[in-house]
Amino acid sequence: MIKELDFSNIKKEKQRCFGGAWYHKVMSVPHDFLGITGVVTLPLPFIKRFDDGFNNNKMVDFNHKNLDVSSIYMGGHATDESDVGLAFSRAILNNQITEGACVYRPFWRYITDQFSDEGGYDLANQRYYAASVLSNHNGMKNVYAQYHPSFSEHYYLPGDTLRMTLISPKPNFLQLTIEVIEVSTLPYSVNLRKKYLLKTPADFVSPLFQSMGHGTKMPKTYKRVNAIDQARNEGKTAIPTKTSVYNALWHECHLVYSEDGKQYLTPLNEASSVSMSCPNEQGFITTAIDSKTGRQNITIEPKRI
């Protein structure tokens, strides 16, 4: 049930850009939220930055390692930060893993000093994901996890329409769910699925992962992000690029909260959020956020600068 909250008395703070990527972020004001949910049609990425030579005539050349990565994700911040969603990734085609990215696959990235869940794939024991520690600062682990690439039903492609939800099923944990709303009719996606006999896309549920403070009464912020992440460049100056990501459409996006024991949705709109386009607003084309639904269309095109 949708029931809009009044955030007029909350002072909004301007966010600081984080280096190393081109991204548009819409982040909520602090509140005792339970999570975030939104329906998004995945964009068309034209990747133009690689480790070596590539076919410039292709939308993506998955025979070469890409250095720009299209990602569409959500996140929450309570005690610690978490980012979860979809990253343009490698795939298994013709029984071989590609060199470069060609499909969107689920990931979850979280910071914890407790249950890190680190470890590799163990398909025999039904552990279908791997979790790697990217960094460890005095016991605070930055963990990145991704589902195994052999499950092509969890390959999501440009033009697919999905509902992504990030919510806390129990205190200090988060979980990502993806529901398939509509399968893409774009030529790239139709042809890739047909040529490589990929399975029909299916719903996805991540394991629970540690994220302290979520599911408690403390104030939290939630966000949605559209990005071109850049390999080996996190925290540095974003690299100029001709890579573009066209027409990611958030049909709706809502924050989840509880009142009198019932769950409600309030739109993630300009009244409840702060937006930013980094590192330069001229590299983005964005529509105004619809006040009732949170609807917004986003194109990332750094070559416009």
Rank of each mutant, 00 (worst) to 15 (best):
V84G: 04
Y156M: 06
H137T: 15
N95R: 09
R105V: 03
G120C: 00
A101S: 13
G85V: 10
S82I: 07
L93D: 08
I111G: 00
S71A: 09
S71H: 06
S150F: 09
S71E: 07
T112C: 01
G76H: 00
D122F: 02
T79N: 14
V84N: 14
F115V: 15
T98Q: 14
Q126D: 12
P149L: 03
M140P: 08
A101C: 11
I111S: 00
M74V: 10
T79W: 13
Q146N: 03
A124G: 12
W108C: 01
E99L: 15
A145Q: 08
R127D: 01
T112E: 01
E99Y: 14
K141I: 02
S135P: 07
Y110P: 00
R105D: 03
Q114R: 14
I72Y: 13
S116G: 01
H137W: 14
F88L: 10
M74G: 08
E81F: 12
P106I: 00
R105Q: 05
G75S: 13
A130C: 11
S152E: 12
N125E: 09
R127A: 07
S132G: 05
A130P: 00
S132L: 01
S132I: 00
S132N: 03
V143A: 01
F107V: 02
S150A: 08
L93I: 09
P106H: 02
R109W: 06
E153Q: 15
R90I: 10
R109L: 04
